[in-house]
Design a protein around this nucleic acid. Structure first.
Lengths: 240, 240
DNA sequence: CAGTGGTCTAGACCACCAC
DNA sequence: TGGTGGTCTAGACCACTGC
């Protein structure tokens, strides 16, 4: 019941209440003062919990009126916030399989060196993985991890989730990423490793991933068959 | 100098200082207590300003250490937060042109009715626009706006920015959107209106846009030539 | 250990909405 | 006018970092 943070705990309770339809879409949540009494918390703490609900698209606030519960049937495919293949796959519950086609440590390649502004002595772990969904090879993942941060990745881990391993087993904290989505012509390797059905292009998602201390530690390139790619985002308009 | 909100004002000042390289990437900002004195504000107010810097990728915070300034050369193409073609175009400074090929009001179409769960009596404004960049037709935009919220869109507005018009001229507040990015086979109309060079697919960005009072008021479908599409995002890992 | 950020509080004043 | 959310404060205690 009790979480590390009071406001996070309150957030989780309110989220659960909304998902259980104790508050229906279009209805108002109790006022901040009311919640303040209910949860035995100060109003600022309640407001922090509500800020999380707002950010995640559960409510919309209106001054003078209250917090309106939004319709959350849209929660099909939340790809915001660094979601990895493993997390996607879990939320999708699709039968899937990962084949590790490469897992080796060596000096950094020149293009990667230039892209990430790293010295040429840098050692990197290179991963290459093919993701199959329902028997079809539809995603090709390249990962490059700095070897001085992560010494090596066991193959069993590469078949599962490297994030899980890094965060839970190694105790490192991944903090943020810079992502880019483009559509590019297929390469020879795409044709070899993916079931492309003659497609001319693939969707390419590139990410630079950083640790909490702001050091770069991973570069990922994820190449998706066009028809299997979908990106969904809940975006709030910047209020200037 | 003085903004509506103190914390927003402080945020803007710190943002400017970072952009002007008064604080360099890798350096620490002054501590919260220090900033508190500098700006004559309470620490919580400073923290709100820092939260904005954090959210927008200017800094990374570390408990016990401080706020580290990040490298913001990545500020090439911020597409987060409901960015429209007009805003993109301004940030890109590319020579571009919009051709309005349709602008009419009428009853809602059946597919749209089903998608948005609206009654069949609903009147909508239908816009169709072709966006040219450097002389090439590369984006096809369909917009459907609820006619009871927006009475009509003058053609001059459609050629420019409908968001500007809605927010500044009509005084309405756009609040949030649900966006989806997919890659789909080209339609007959794509072929007719865009310069596709034989491409088989286009990138499709669909958005449902909502007002501050949570009413839906716009559906947009934006169809991009593959090679002209790029989506960049700064994502923070969800801290559980 | 001192200094940093992270959380939480109780109270104040303001802007907005509905009646 | 009373209730709502939005902002701001001064102060407290805790957890983490670095020396």
């Amino acid at each position: 019941m009790i979480d590390l943070n009071k406001f996070n705990d309150i957030y989780l309770q309110l989220e659960a209440a909304i998902l259980e339809k104790k508050y229906l879409p279009g209805e108002l949540l109790p006022s901040e003062n009311e919640l303040s009494k209910q949860f035995q918390a100060s109003r600022e703490t309640i407001r922090k919990a509500l800020a999380l609900l707002l950010e995640n698209g559960y409510i919309q606030k209106q001054q003078g009126k209250g917090s309106i519960v939004l319709d959350v049937n849209r929660f099909v495919f939340p790809v915001a916030g660094l979601t990895s293949f493993k997390e996607l796959q879990e939320s999708q519950k699709m039968p899937s399989q990962t084949i590790v086609t490469k897992n080796q440590t060596g000096p950094i390649s020149k293009p990667l060196m230039e892209r990430l502004h790293l010295p040429k002595e840098t050692q990197v772990i290179s991963l290459e993985r093919v993701r199959k969904i329902q028997g079809e090879a539809v995603i090709l993942d390249y990962d490059f991890l700095l070897a001085d941060v992560i010494s090596d990745i066991p193959n069993e881990v590469a078949e599962d989730s490297i994030y899980d391993y890094i965060e839970n087993d190694l105790g490192l904290t991944i903090s943020y990423a810079q992502k880019e989505i483009t559509v590019e012509p297929v390469t020879k390797q795409d044709k070899e490793l993916l079931d492309l059905n003659g497609d001319s292009h693939v969707v390419v998602v590139r990410s630079d991933v950083y640790m909490q201390d702001t050091t770069l530690f991973q570069y990922t390139e994820s190449r998706h068959r066009m028809d299997k790619f979908r990106f969904v985002e809940f975006a709030r308009r910047k209020q200037v």
